[in-house]
Amino acid sequence: MSDMQYTNEHEWLKIDGDTAVVGITTYARHALGDIVFLELPDVGRKVAKGEDFAVVESVKAASEIYAPVTGEITAINDNLPDNLDDLKEDLDKGWIVKIKMDNPSEASEYMDKTAYETYTAGLE
């Protein structure tokens, strides 16, 4: 999974052709605590980079998940809302949406694993 990229807002993304697969990071998962609810967007929805497209809730907090790239949501992980433990930094089970990118170059600006680890260490 070393080719995952990471945002300041704690999403991971993995580029597959013109599609970005998006999820939330292990760091985010820990920060949120016990997750009780995930609200998924509709397939076909257009999202702009930086726009929130899903909400993940713990008992005391609701956190928006932001689109790291502009494009159209082509798939959502239907399995997640009923299996919230799978919501993690895992390409197979933990992805939330797939976004077909309008402008694939947007994906190039994010951190790699090492940079993200340095970044989160600074947040402690």
Partner: peptide, 12 residues
């Protein structure tokens, strides 16, 4: 289900 409410969600 208080994440719907103002003290957590504020303007949302």
């Amino acid at each position: 289900l208080s994440t719907r409410e103002q003290h957590i969600r504020r303007e949302k």
